[in-house]
Amino acid sequence: MKTKLTLSMEQTLYYYCREAGAFAVEEVTMPDDQGIVDTLSYQELPSGDIEWRCYELKVTKSDFHSKAKLSFVGHYNYFVLPLDLYQEVADEIPAGIGVLIYRPFAEELLATATETPVAPGYLTVMRPPRHQDLQVPASQLTTRFIASQAREVGKAKQTATGLKQYSTDRLYQELKKRHQHYDIYDPEANFYEQFIEDTQSTAVTALQTEVDALNLELHTLQDQLKERS
């Protein structure tokens, strides 16, 4: 489960890559036991060459020291870190690996912003990366990049479809799983009461709309009868 900070950094990095003219996708599995790249970006340069960048996101010191393989297989490779973590581990970062520092936007600045930012924070380059040859074949990077994008499109389609993709029986079973959280002393906290209230409200609104339409039609007919008489 990703922490709120990780999700904020991930979202900020996505738009950071997009602003640079690159395409980015998260959690790309590498071939040959090369691990999983947290974020992989692809960019076609004016020369026609393709540039790959790999980003590893770390939010705590224990996370930084995790035994999970660091998939620095791109032309340029980065750690993306909060400032306080960078200050703790700066001496442990290998030569050639770049560092992007994540900073959240201050709430007081957000309150005065004329436009809502697309990301919760911003990134600054603390250490530039050094170019290296790809550590895996470019064709495999492309294939896995496309596969990961297809996975994200699938997730988006499921979200857009919403509950329509589930059968009534499946929804009923999911509701039953939540019965242990039922609180008779706090009805407003119960999903079932919220569902019934919303359903009744929708039904009342629909009926009222129908009644209003019938009243309008009746009024129109009465006017027409008066004119004829």
Results as ranks from 00 to 15, higher is better:
Met1Ala: 12
Thr6Leu: 05
Glu10His: 08
Glu10Asp: 10
Gln11Tyr: 04
Tyr14Phe: 14
Cys17Gly: 00
Glu19Thr: 09
Ala20Ile: 02
Ala20Leu: 14
Ala22Arg: 15
Ala22Gly: 06
Phe23Leu: 15
Glu27Ser: 15
Pro31Leu: 05
Asp32Met: 05
Asp32Lys: 10
Gln34Ile: 00
Ile36Thr: 10
Val37Glu: 00
Ser41Glu: 13
Tyr42Lys: 10
Glu44His: 02
Leu45Gly: 04
Asp49Gln: 11
Asp49Tyr: 01
Trp52Thr: 09
Arg53Glu: 10
Tyr55Arg: 06
Tyr55Ser: 05
Tyr55Met: 05
Glu56Cys: 08
Leu57Pro: 06
Lys58Leu: 03
Thr60Glu: 06
Ser62Val: 05
Asp63Thr: 10
Asp63Met: 09
His65Ala: 13
Leu70His: 11
Leu70Ser: 01
Ser71Lys: 03
Gly74Phe: 10
Tyr76Thr: 07
Leu81Asp: 09
Pro82Gly: 07
Leu83Tyr: 10
Leu85Arg: 06
Gln87Arg: 15
Gln87Pro: 07
Val89Ser: 01
Val89Pro: 15
Ala90Gly: 00
Ala90Thr: 06
Asp91Phe: 13
Glu92Arg: 13
Ile97Asn: 03
Gly98Lys: 02
Leu100Val: 05
Ile101Pro: 01
Arg103Ala: 12
Arg103Gly: 00
Phe105Met: 02
Ala106Lys: 11
Glu107Phe: 03
Ala111Met: 06
Gly121Met: 03
Tyr122Arg: 10
Arg127Gln: 09
Arg127Ala: 04
Pro128His: 01
Pro129Gly: 05
Gln132Ser: 15
Leu134Pro: 11
Val136Asp: 09
Thr143Val: 04
Thr143Ile: 05
Arg144Pro: 00
Arg144Ile: 04
Ala147Cys: 01
Ala147Phe: 06
Ser148Gln: 10
Gln149Gly: 08
Val153Gln: 04
Gly154Ser: 03
Gln158Pro: 00
Ala160Gly: 03
Thr161Pro: 00
Thr161Leu: 13
Leu163Pro: 07
Lys164Ile: 05
Gln165Ile: 11
Gln165Ala: 12
Thr168Pro: 00
Thr168Gln: 08
Asp169Val: 12
Arg170Asp: 12
Leu175Glu: 02
Lys177Tyr: 14
His179Ala: 09
His179Leu: 15
Asp183Gln: 15
Ile184Val: 13
Tyr185Gln: 12
Asp186Met: 09
Ala189Lys: 14
Asn190Leu: 08
Phe191Thr: 11
Tyr192Arg: 04
Tyr192Thr: 09
Glu193Gly: 02
Glu193Met: 06
Glu193Ala: 02
Glu193Trp: 14
Phe195Ser: 05
Thr199Gln: 06
Thr199Val: 01
Val204Thr: 10
Ala206Arg: 10
Leu207His: 04
Val211Ile: 15
Val211Met: 09
Ala213His: 06
Glu217Met: 07
His219Asn: 11
Glu227Gln: 14
Arg228Ser: 12
